[in-house]
Design a protein around this nucleic acid. Structure first.
Lengths: 102, 102
DNA sequence: TTTAGTAGTCATGTTTTTTTGACCTCTTGT
DNA sequence: ACAAGAGGTCAAAAAAACATGACTACTAAA
């Protein structure tokens, strides 16, 4: 008995799962769901988080097209990260996952 | 501006995400979706996989209630892992994820 | 009795991820 | 001029995840 020779065996969801499960990523995602997020605010609000990891996480979520980096050129010029379309499409998935956890 | 003081900040989906994203886990899951899986068969069929990691992955998926370990006391006695109810409920989530990857 | 298959464990080593702490740039407030 | 906040980077260390190889126990066939 052989478990189907799906030799070329890369689960399509795998990459996305990895991206979403890195340290701090789920939190970042959740914060982003209810509004734009900013670096130093996150650093203050997520206890235990550190610059480097947040920077990496944001960069990865951005490069995966889940967050958009926006430079707000106003009075004290700052940077915001918003959920993209792709990011939004993940919301129901998180909700389902939360439903399953119970 | 403070990103909502959801100080006690554990994303409910986080644990599940982590469980699903460990090495070989997505593959194990996929194999399990189309039928019971067995240790040595997996070891042969998943190229690159090693005993230790498979054992750990199976154990974790089992302890999370995603797989059930079944001892088949037949002729040459062996062990099978099947998707549980919880495991089945993850199937649509994987499908959605696959739809998003594109 | 030796070999082969199933289903692992254990100790160890390597690799990858995360964390720490120092440093940098730019802008605004005092 | 200097401090303080925003938004980082870099090198190095610590921690977590993965891989390797040796070994175990049981069963069955040669």
């Amino acid at each position: 008995m052989t478990t189907k020779n799906q030799a070329e065996n890369t689960c399509p969801a795998e990459g996305l799962l990895k991206i979403l499960s890195g340290k701090w990523k789920p939190q970042l995602f959740r914060f982003a769901v209810n509004g734009a997020i900013r670096f130093n605010t996150l650093l203050r609000d997520i206890e235990g988080a550190n610059k480097q990891s947040l920077a990496t996480a944001l960069k990865e979520l951005e490069s995966e097209g889940i967050l958009h980096k926006v430079i707000i050129s106003e009075k004290p010029l700052h940077i915001e990260y918003n959920l993209s379309e792709k990011g939004l499409s993940l919301v129901p998935i998180f909700q389902q996952l939360e439903g399953i956890v119970k």
